[in-house]
Design a protein around this nucleic acid. Structure first.
Lengths: 171, 171, 171, 171
DNA sequence: CATGAATGAGGTTTCATTCAT
DNA sequence: AATGAATGAAACCTCATTCAT
C-alpha cells in the first residue's frame, strides 16, 4: 500500500499494476490475493489515508471547538500536510476527477457534516456576522494552502501561510 | 477541442481517443490529421484555455496594478471561473499530476514571474509589511476558492467567497 | 467466424482468442472491432449456425406436416448433420454445459414450441395413441443419432440410422 | 470428489480449483496432496463414475444377454440415469469435447467392444436381419434418451421413453 | 494432514496510432 | 478532408501449481 500510494501520487492512477508489484517487491498475482482489483486497491489506500488524516479533527470528540482547539487544529493541518505530501496529492488527484470523485464520496459525506457544524458553531461563538460564509471561506483557504504546499513546496511556505491564516480567522 | 475538453475534464485524461472521436462526430483517423497525438491534443486544449483564462490579467500590460485594477482582477477571476468550469477542472487535473505537470510548466513559468512581481509591488504600495507572503497567501486563497467552486459549486458560493476575499486583502 | 467455429468445436470454448486470431489471419485487436467479447463471438456464431440449421424445418411454414414432408424432414436432418459436423459439435458443447446453456435458451425457446406442436399434430394425424410421447421419443432418437454421428462418424452410419428411424416412426 | 463432480458438471471443466477447494471445504494446497493436477482430479472422478455406471452391464459377466437380461439392462440404464444426473452430464461434457475425449478413450475402448459384441449377438439371437445396425440404433437411441433426460428433465419423461424403447427393440 | 502465501504464464481486453483508400 | 480496418503493445486479471511452514 505504501508503494502504490507513492506511485499513484506521483504517476497518477493509471500507473500499471505491474509497476506497483515491482516496487512493492511482490508478484502481480499476489496483489490480487489482497485486493480484488486495481480500483479496490486505490479505494483501500484512499480510505486508510483519508481517515488517518481526518483523525485529529476535534480529537476529544465533544463536538465543540474552543479557540485553542481551533488554533491546534490549524497547526495540525499544516503539520500533517507537510508530513503526508503523497497522501494529499493522491487525495487531490481523485477529488479533481469527476468520475473518480465518488470513490471518496461515501466517506466524505460521513465526515463533512459534523465538521461543518462544529466550524459554524465556532464562528458563531466568535461573533462573526455570517458564520457559514466564514466556515466556507476557511475551508477553501485551507484547501488552497494545502494544495499549493503539496504541489509547489518550493514556492509556498507552510509556516508563513499558517501564520497569515490564523491572523485572518482570529479576531 | 470542445468535445475533448469536456471529456478530459469529466473523465480524466485517460479517456480513449475513440470516445473523443465519437463525441466530436469525426473519425479517429481524422483526429490524427489535426493533432499529432493524444498528448498533443491535450496540450493544445490546455494552452488555448489557459492563455484564454489568463488573458485578462493586467490587461493594459503596464506592469502596475492599481487598487481598482486589483478589484477588477478579483472580479474577473471569479467571473471566468464560473464560466469555465471545464477548463479549470482540466487545469487542476493536469496540475495535480506530477508527471503531467510539465505539460503546463513552460507556459506557467512564462506567465508566473511577471504576475508575482506585479502582485508583490501592489502589496508593497498598499503598505503591507510582508508583501511576498501576502502575494503567496492571495494566490493560495484564490486557488482554494476556484478549486472548491469548480468541484463543488453546490456548496461553495462564488459571490460570498469573492466578497470575503476582497475584505481580507483590501485594507 | 468460420475459423472460430472450427476451433470452438474442436478445442472447446476455452480456446484462446489469440489462436482464433491466428487461424483467421487477423490480429486479436481486430476481433474486438467486430465482436464485443469472446462470449459475444461465440453467441453470434451459435445463433447464425442454429438458425441456419433449423431453417429447413417446415419450409413452407404452413404449420402442417404431411407424411412426405415428414420424410423430407428426416432426410434433411441427416443431410445437414453430415454437412455441419462442426456446428453440431459446438451446439452440443454449449447445450451440455449448464451455465452456458442459457446462451441458446432465448433462441431455442422461440423455435421449439412451434416445432413440437407441428410434430404432435403429425403423430395425431397418423393415429398414434400417445402423440406427445411419440414426439418426445422422435426428438430424443434424433438427438442421439445426430450426436453419435457427429462424435463418432467412424462407428455410426448416418444412412442406416436414418432408414431405421423412418421404419420406426412410419406406420 | 463429490463437490468437484457437481461443479464440473454444472460449470464445466474450466471451473477454477479455488472454487472446488472452497466448495469441498479444504484448502487448494490439500487438493494437491490427493491429486497430482486438476486434470488428474477430473480423470479420477470420471473413471470412478463411468465404471460405476457401466458396472451393471452384463452383471454375471457370461457374455450372453437373454431377453430378460436385456430388459433388465434397459431398466437399469434409466434408473441409473435419473440417479446420476451430474455424472452423466459430466460424461457428456467430456465426450463432446474432441480434445478432452481422449481422457475417456482408454477406458471406453476397453468396455465398448465387449458391449457391442454382446449386443450384436443378442439381436442375432432375436432374429433381426441387420443385427449390427440394430445395435448401433439402440445405442444412439439410448444416448439420445439419456442426454435429453439429463439436460431437460422437465421436458423428457424417463418412464415413457423407456417404455417406448422397449417396444421398439422387443419383437 | 493441512494451510495459504506466493508465483508466473497466459488469458481477455483496451487503445493509441497507422495507413490504404 | 475523411474514413475505418488494422495492428501491436500493454493493460488488467485469472489460475494451476508450488512450497515453506
Amino acid at each position: 500500500m505504501q508503494a502504490s500510494l507513492e506511485l499513484f501520487a506521483s504517476k497518477g492512477i493509471q500507473i500499471p499494476i505491474s509497476q506497483i508489484a515491482e516496487k512493492s517487491g511482490v508478484s502481480k498475482g499476489l496483489l490480487y490475493n489482497y485486493f480484488d482489483s486495481k480500483l479496490d486497491l486505490l479505494k483501500e489506500i484512499l480510505l486508510t489515508k483519508v481517515t488517518e488524516i481526518f483523525s485529529f479533527f476535534d480529537p476529544n470528540n465533544d463536538g465543540v471547538l474552543t479557540r485553542d482547539e481551533f488554533i491546534y487544529f490549524i497547526d495540525e493541518i499544516f503539520r500533517t500536510t507537510v508530513n503526508n505530501i503523497d497522501s494529499w496529492r493522491l487525495y487531490f488527484i481523485i477529488v479533481v476527477q469527476k468520475e473518480a470523485h465518488e470513490i471518496l464520496n461515501k466517506e466524505l459525506e460521513k465526515l463533512m457534516p459534523a465538521f461543518m457544524r462544529i466550524l459554524i458553531n465556532y464562528f458563531k461563538t466568535e461573533g462573526r456576522k455570517d458564520p457559514e460564509a466564514e466556515a466556507m471561506f476557511l475551508i477553501s483557504t485551507l484547501d488552497g494552502a494545502i494544495m499549493d504546499i503539496v504541489l509547489n513546496p518550493e514556492y509556498f511556505n507552510a509556516d508563513k501561510l499558517k501564520k497569515r491564516i490564523i491572523e485572518t480567522f482570529i479576531n
